[in-house]
Structures are given as C-alpha cells and as structure tokens.
Write a protein that binds this DNA or RNA. Structure first.
Length: 272
DNA sequence: AGTGCGACCCGAACGC
DNA sequence: TGCGTTCGGGTCGCAC
C-alpha cells in the first residue's frame, strides 16, 4: 500500500534509472486506468523521453519534453523495471518500452491506480494537481492555516485529515499515527481542534513522514524483479493495525473503530 | 456547500 | 478441503 513515503521512494528510485531513455513503445492492457485519450497517450509518449520526475501529494509527475505523465498509485500500484523480453505477468497494465529494450512496467493488483497525460502548459489547471493542499514540511502549513480550514468542519478530525485539499499526502495509516502522536481523539470534530493540537498535528505529520521516507529509502532495493517492496516503516507503527495490543505510552489496549468507513486505530486513554 | 456513502477492484483473511 | 463472505485502501461522483 503506497503511502506518500513510498511514492517519494518510487520517485527517487525511478529518477536514477529511467531519465533520458527514448520511449520506443507503449502498451496498455487495461484501458480504464488511462484517463486521457488512449491513442493520444501512446502517440505523445512514443519518441519522447522522461527528463525529470516530480511529486505533488501522492501524484507522481513524470516530466517529458512537451508533456507531463501523471500517475497515482492508489493502494497497490507499483513500477518495475524489466527487460522487454521478460514475459508479461498478471496485473501489468501499462508497459513503456525504451530504446535500450528495457521496460517501465506499471503493476496494480486492484486496478485502482490512474494515469493521465497532459500538455505541460496545462499542469497548473489540471484538477488533481490544482486541488492538492499543503505538503507536510511546507512552511506555510501553520496552525493558523489549519484552524481556518477546520473552522466550519463538523466532521471528525480523522476524516478531515484525509482530505487532500487541506494537507496533501496523508493516508489512513499516517493519519492514525499522526493523531496518536498529537494525542487527539480521532472522533473530535475538526472545528473544535485547538491551536496547540494543530501544532502537534503539523509536527507529527512532518516527523512521521520524514522518518517513513528514510525507512522507505533504505528498504526498497530494486524495482527490477521481486515484488517484495514492503517498507520497514511498518515496524514503526505505534497504533495502526495494533488493535488489542498495549499502547506503547500507557499500556491500555489500542482500539479500532470505523470513522467514515475507515479503520481507525487509537489509544482511548492517550487520545481522550 | 457540506456531508454521507456506494462504486471501483481483487486477493487475503475469515467463517462455516 | 472447499466453499461463500468480508475487508481494505484512495478518490470520485451522486444523492441529500
């Protein structure tokens, strides 16, 4: 499940391996994952090259000479580098072949990921990019910014932190971890969250994501073959998936309740 | 406008 | 053993 840390790791890893190789062919085995016109998608990629890879929230932005290829991994999307002669395996939906007979292959068990090819000048008006809120670590992400965004929200803070238009990049796992770090009850209405709690949320998001990126960077070895790319950051999780286990701060049993249909793990004592 | 929820997917985990 | 059922993840789109 790629969270932002894995998206960032993928970005850094691929950047070392695919830049400036001419694209020779593009094959699409699952058309629904391409949001733009399929024919144009292929035609515009073939003959071009990737010159940089950027990221905005959980979106990967592959820069070409005249276009950007936007890619969202959702839950299970992965990129692999393989030789063009390698057999195409199940769940490989998009294959980009370079002129040195290597492939960039997009693999997605659940077919939730999406790709979109846009003209460069359209990046800032592309909705999925436009809508992204501030990234953890951005100096503009202040308690005042959050208080302003939260003030009319009756929804639980848990739900609001998953809203990518406010803070971009937090998924279910990190929101659970961030709220534990900040000692905030996930059911608390966002409009009631205090300035001090906002500060703790900002600090927690920054620290947790930074650490996860470091772990991801040391864990993901290769995209050429094996699917085993699980990050070591899982060992660092303090509440997520720890239902019934003792809280690492107070020893109380970690609870798991649904909020907005999503599993929410928290310590009922530390997060009153 | 803000909110709630099903749909999209399919493998793993679970219940019988 | 082998069925059927439930769950999980992020995001969108529709209904209220």
């Amino acid at each position: 499940m790629p969270e932002i840390a894995e998206v960032e790791t993928v970005r850094r890893t691929l950047k070392k391996q695919i830049l400036h190789k001419r694209i020779k062919d593009v094959k699409i085995y699952y058309e629904k994952m391409i949001e733009s016109d399929i024919k144009t998608f292929k035609n515009d990629l073939i003959g071009d090259e990737f010159i940089d890879i950027k990221r905005r929230g959980k979106w990967l932005i592959f820069e070409l000479n005249k276009h950007y290829l936007l890619s969202h991994l959702r839950m299970e999307g992965k990129f692999f580098l393989k030789n063009s002669s390698d057999e195409v395996v199940k769940h490989e939906h998009v294959i980009i072949t370079f002129n040195d007979d290597t492939d960039l292959r997009y693999h997605d068990t659940r077919k939730f990921g999406r790709m979109n090819l846009i003209k460069k000048e359209d990046l800032e008006k592309t909705e999925c990019i436009l809508k992204q809120g501030l990234e953890p670590g951005d100096k503009n992400l202040t308690p005042e910014y959050l208080l302003n965004k939260f003030k009319n929200k009756k929804l639980p803070i848990k739900t609001v932190l998953l809203d990518q238009t406010i803070i971009s990049g937090l998924g279910n796992i990190y929101v659970n971890e961030v709220l534990f770090y900040a000692k905030v009850n996930p059911f608390k209405k966002a409009s009631l969250v205090t300035k001090e709690e906002c500060l703790a949320i900002i600090k927690g998001a920054d620290e947790i994501i930074k650490e996860a990126i470091e772990m991801g960077g040391t864990t993901i070895k290769s995209y050429t073959s094996s699917l085993g790319v699980t990050g070591r950051f899982q060992q660092k999780l303090k509440v997520h998936k720890r239902e019934g286990e003792p809280c690492l701060k107070c020893g109380a049993k970690i609870a798991n309740q649904k909020i907005g249909g999503r599993s929410t793990y928290f310590c009922p004592i530390c997060q009153k």
